[in-house]
Nucleic acid binder design. Structure first.
Lengths: 414, 414
DNA sequence: GGGGTTTAGTAAATGTCTTTTAGAAAATGT
DNA sequence: ACATTTTCTAAAAGACATTTACTAAACCCC
């Protein structure tokens, strides 16, 4: 009767009656605490999450039963009664990751703590979508049927534009076979486990926050200079998605109004002026023949051919893009990932001085700019773990700021 | 005893013991429901916020007692027992707004529903900070001592760069007297009421979301083309702030790598190439004498002097900035506020076609671009109301996504 | 080695909250 | 006049976290 009354007012999306949410939220708090701080005893959890000891204990009990936590013997020598530490399962439960890329794809698995397992399956990217699905499914099934292990979900990292509202890959220049398909939905049907797909740079960003150098940071950005240029932004503790999930598409902002024509139709996009492919293009012109990124990186590293001019040019344009990111998002740290910087460390400092000129002083001085060495595998894993933990929460509280200190008590009941 | 134990682990920021949070959250839900949907009966609130009737009733009771709600007689004629509607107080409680600007300042007041009162105090911006404070205080005190009205807080809108973590104005080219001062903290001391300060464009953004054309939108942006260029972005239902509150500083992104030197030291900033001042500069050059924005707008409106070239140039650069915003934030709507577009409607459609060329197709087609006519007064008011309502929540839940549909039950207890 | 101390963890009582259930109030419809 | 509908509240019931008290298991020190 009550339900029917509500129906005329409310959208149908949110499920109606939920019971006993208070304890669910506390369970989530406990999980988050352990995820952020590592293995802890029940008492530590209680202190850290600001809940009382019995509450923490009960939540832990229920999580142990569900297989989302494990107990380990404490090795620390302390004064009082020794504590049994709680930790995220490293072997009893796992999640899978699928990393799609232009040339090759990888299937990885990891514990719920994000620690990658050793076995990695790798295969060349097939040239049609059906085959991609078949091949991926085969490897994933192998990873699935480990003994005594529950697999909780699969995270997929995809290059190119992703529509999050429809879970669709809409435009992937480097992996066109996924266009207008939804690997996550298709694999979810085939495998029967929860699947989520994330844009490559977004995934990288999540990985850095959970398992990398951005632990505890609420406002940072991750720039990936590759064939194209990708960007993931964490703002206020949440991954920036925008209306459909296209947020962070920095590759096609204009950095040179009359620059080279880009595949997107515009002129002087960041991607055409400053990326691995831009570098390759410039050096090809210089050499008078075609070349590829590996050779270019060798040239840089060896210093044999004088290409300072080309590199400076690229730095100049890249700096405009980076400065734009700093001005618009005011990150506390900006991670830059790119093979060309690994090849020549001097390149990075040159870039820095360019960025300083191009960005607003207060925003620049507020921002640490560092090189990153993220892994897409970890990104796919971080994506699914984030999703799983988040979906433990009642819908009303999902997509929470997920602060580092899990905040003093928030506990709900229905 | 318990508190002391926690102290060695946790930052001191969050206040320690809070009691009876469950009901506080429900009160907040009720308030939000009424704020979003307008006056409602207790029964409607219960349905809309998905809480049971007695719960809604009790929360309403407590809010009525606190003066945060009023009752009104329902005029609707329905079947059953007539309902007494609940609404946000329009007269019994008020908030104040202080809008600081380069030339003049204004003091306004409004009900808790955001409806501006008629009396507006206006004064020329003094040339030193002490005098500004004194003058503002005098007007604010007048607004404060209305009979039988509780004043709950003051919102301040400030142009230029604001540091939210330290509540400091750090760089305001057009209002330099506030530099390194905190009007909010200073007025809070003098007046004894809660004060918050917001960057002008951020305030505008909030106003549009609460009382303008962006009601219910979770991802939109608001671009203000003025002497400078300001940007406020709402993403995932939250105002983008960045690490220190500098997010959205679009004025100094580079749109013309070798353009005119800007006050910030960079070349070809958006603000120097496409803003009211850029327009004035260009037309001054053309006329061979100094002019001002009012005259320029007249020239545009009258069409007497052919200045198409100058205007096209500005459109071109503005489009680069706008396209950057669309690519990076993927907003569902972009509001553009600017006097020059009001003067010549054709200008706007010209801008649109430029933007389309400069932005990524999927992001562009996902984004409505419309003219806005926001008011800074409403912005200051929206700022303080947002703050007040948010601070009703327990710290752990503050800065909530504040979705339009207040979500199925979230109710907590301690 | 035994008592004192410290820390971890659990059990039962207490209290606070929401929900359920039931009913009164106030209008319309027939 | 009586049934129906809707709003709103009161009292009982139920769920959950907290408080309080207690046990378990270690170390420290005389």
């Amino acid at each position: 009767m009550y339900n029917q009354n509500t129906m005329n007012e409310l959208p149908a999306s949110t499920s109606d009656i939920q019971t006993s949410l208070l304890s669910k939220i506390n369970e989530w708090q406990v999980l988050r605490a352990i995820q952020h701080r590592g293995p802890m005893s029940r008492a530590e959890v209680a202190r850290y999450a600001r809940i009382t000891a019995p509450t923490a204990s009960k939540a832990a009990e229920s999580l142990l039963k569900a297989g989302l936590l494990e107990e380990e013997e404490s090795t620390e020598i302390l004064r009082g009664r020794p504590a049994r530490k709680l930790r995220l399962p490293q072997r009893n439960a796992q999640v899978l990751g699928l990393v799609l890329d232009a040339d090759k794809c990888r299937v990885v698995s990891a514990g719920l703590d994000g620690s990658l397992h050793d076995t990695v399956y790798e295969f060349a990217t097939p040239d049609n979508y059906g085959l991609l699905l078949d091949t991926a499914e085969a490897y994933l099934r192998t990873a699935l049927k480990r003994e005594n292990v529950i697999t909780l979900g699969l995270g997929i990292s995809i290059p190119g534009l992703l529509d999050y509202s429809n879970q669709l890959s809409i435009l992937s220049p480097n992996l066109p076979i996924t266009n207008n398909h939804s690997p996550a939905q298709d694999l979810e049907k085939r495998l029967g486990i929860v699947c989520v797909q994330l844009q490559e740079s977004h995934a990288l960003c999540l990985a850095e926050r959970h398992y990398g150098n951005a632990i505890g940071m609420d406002d940072f950005a991750m720039l990936d200079v590759n064939i194209g240029v990708g960007l993931g932004v964490m703002s206020g503790g949440r991954l920036l998605k925008g209306n459909r999930g296209l947020a962070g598409e920095v590759g096609h902002i204009t950095v040179s109004p009359n620059g080279r024509r880009c595949g997107c139709g515009n002129r002087g996009c960041l991607e055409t002026e400053a990326s691995d492919s831009a570098l390759v293009h410039a050096i090809s012109q210089r050499l008078g023949r075609k070349t590829d990124i590996d050779e270019v990186l060798q040239i840089i590293a060896s210093g044999k051919i004088e290409i300072t001019h080309e590199i400076e040019q690229i730095c100049r344009y890249l700096a405009i893009g980076v400065a734009t990111v700093i001005n618009l998002f005011n990150p506390s740290t900006l991670f830059i990932h790119g093979r060309m910087f690994a090849a020549d460390p001097a390149l990075f400092s040159r870039l820095l001085t360019e960025i300083e000129q191009r960005s607003l002083a207060p925003a620049f001085s507020d921002c640490h700019i560092v090189m990153a060495r993220g892994s897409k595998r970890q990104g796919a894993i971080a994506g699914i773990i984030e999703h799983l933990f988040n979906s433990l929460l009642p819908p009303s509280m999902q997509e929470t700021p997920s602060r580092t200190l899990p905040s003093p008590v928030s506990v709900a009941q229905r």
